[in-house]
Amino acid sequence: MDMVQLILAAAISGGTSLLFAVLGGILNEKAGVINLGTEGIMLIGAVISAIFYLQTENLFVTFLVMLVASGLLGLLHAFLCITIRANQIVSGLAVTLFGTGLSAYLGKSVAGVPIPVSIPKIELSLLDSIPFLSIFSELDIFIWMSIALSIILYLYMYKTSWGLHLKAVGDNPSTSDAMGISVTAFRYFHVVVGAMLMGVAGFYLIMVYSPNWIEGMTSGRGWIAIALIIFARWNPIYALFGAYFFGGLDSLGFRMQIYNFDIPSYFLKMIPYLATILVLMFSGWKNRHKPSIEPKSLGNPYFREQRF
């Protein structure tokens, strides 16, 4: 395989965990709730996976328990943001703090214990002979799951009536309320499911990437995922490419070292963040007379009787 393909393969495997978190974040934000708790939920997802897999050795059960645990954190965030109408930023921050602390606390007993897990792979030997697609010939099921999820979410958000409702809820809750959509139920559902996906991100990290629990093992990837949501402009398909782009940059930096390109990796790593700001500025300028693409009521709690 040539260089480009290798980087692509590394980007896919490096970006998958991010992708799950980003998709979860998109669901949250599309419903008008920003979730800064991604890092904490990922850590909880990872530590719960470690604990339960070591106990049960059953991938399916572990996956379910992890979904419940991360969903619970999502429920907490939803309760605070939607029912109690607390400040979403502060609530998200609290989720991250609490999740980071709790995961370290829970993980003490399993820290460093190797997790004897093997994730089933899907082998497509057909693709082996096709030059460029051969990197897809042997990916684990979760990579396929993440790709499928991006497409499904895209179809869901842009092609179904529920998806249109979701957009309405995130943009203009009082109108959708008038249309008879339960804003509260919609927001709850998407925040909880979104949090579950963030949990899957942690699950993937520990089951595939580094199969043993280490305190704080996400090392900031949850925050990167939050940046990526915006980079992807709340579009699940863009998120797919965005996650691979972020995932691939790490790998690109290391490869440049091997071939003695002397660019400080720090500047390479700045690119995505600066690019995000520039892209947003550009589209903000281009659409200065049009409504913006971001969910308009993002960050605002919905007061039902606010429609005067």
Binding site: V90, F98, G101, L102, A104, Y105
Partner: peptide, 16 residues
């Protein structure tokens, strides 16, 4: 990390 857990819990209680 216990202290960050405590900070998180305080925030939860505070905003609610």
């Amino acid at each position: 990390s216990f202290s960050s857990m405590l900070q998180g819990a305080i925030l939860f209680c505070l905003i609610s």
